[in-house]
């Protein structure tokens, strides 16, 4: 991914296509009698996603079969937050999707970094926190309170872990 555009079969005649300025109907260059939609590729400046582990060179073991490899291919700068940093990861010992370091610019050691989402194979989503988040997002005022408590009011990652990660999730990583 990260190529200039991708051909697509579909969407012609829909109201979706009317609003997508990044998609056009064009002639197939190899068969001008037939038209298809082409979609301009997304080329994000920065991609950030979470994975199970990284080695010191930036090779990534996602821990699950992930589409994020497309994100890593498409983005100009790739930051991966990981549960653990180990000496060496090869494609062979990777769990799930392997992303080679050539696609990765930065790694961040962030245990429980997927919270309140889950990290496949390690811990499940924190449903109680998710519900609190959904409730908080109902109004601007309560959402600002949420941000104050869990984002802006936190001075370090360790402090977040102490305050926000429930014990049953902490037990999942030794």
């Amino acid at each position: 991914m990260g190529v200039p555009y991708v051909p697509i079969i579909g969407l012609i005649g829909t109201d979706i296509l009317k609003r997508r300025l990044d998609m056009k109907i064009v002639e197939n260059p190899f068969n001008p009698d037939v038209k298809t939609v082409v979609a301009q590729s997304l080329r994000p400046d920065i991609a950030i996603f979470h994975a199970q582990s990284a080695d010191k060179l930036g090779n990534i073991s996602c821990g699950y079969d992930a589409e994020v490899v497309m994100l890593a291919e498409g983005a100009k700068h790739v930051i991966v937050t990981v549960e653990s940093v180990v000496d060496k990861i090869t494609e062979k010992d990777s769990v799930g999707t392997y992303i080679p370091s050539i696609l990765v610019n930065s790694i961040v050691h962030a245990p429980y970094g997927a919270h309140p989402s889950g990290c496949a194979g390690l811990y499940d989503p924190d449903k109680v926190h998710m519900q609190a988040y959904v409730k908080a997002s109902q109004s601007e005022e309560t959402f600002q309170e949420y941000l104050k408590k869990y984002v802006h009011g936190i001075s370090s990652h360790e402090e977040y872990i102490d305050m926000a990660i429930p014990d049953h999730i902490k037990k999942t990583i030794k």
Binding site: I12, G13, N28, T36
Partner: peptide, 12 residues
């Protein structure tokens, strides 16, 4: 229209 039942002849 999320998906159309038919499309012009000259489209794939």
């Amino acid at each position: 229209i999320s998906a159309a039942g038919s499309s012009p002849e000259d489209t794939l």
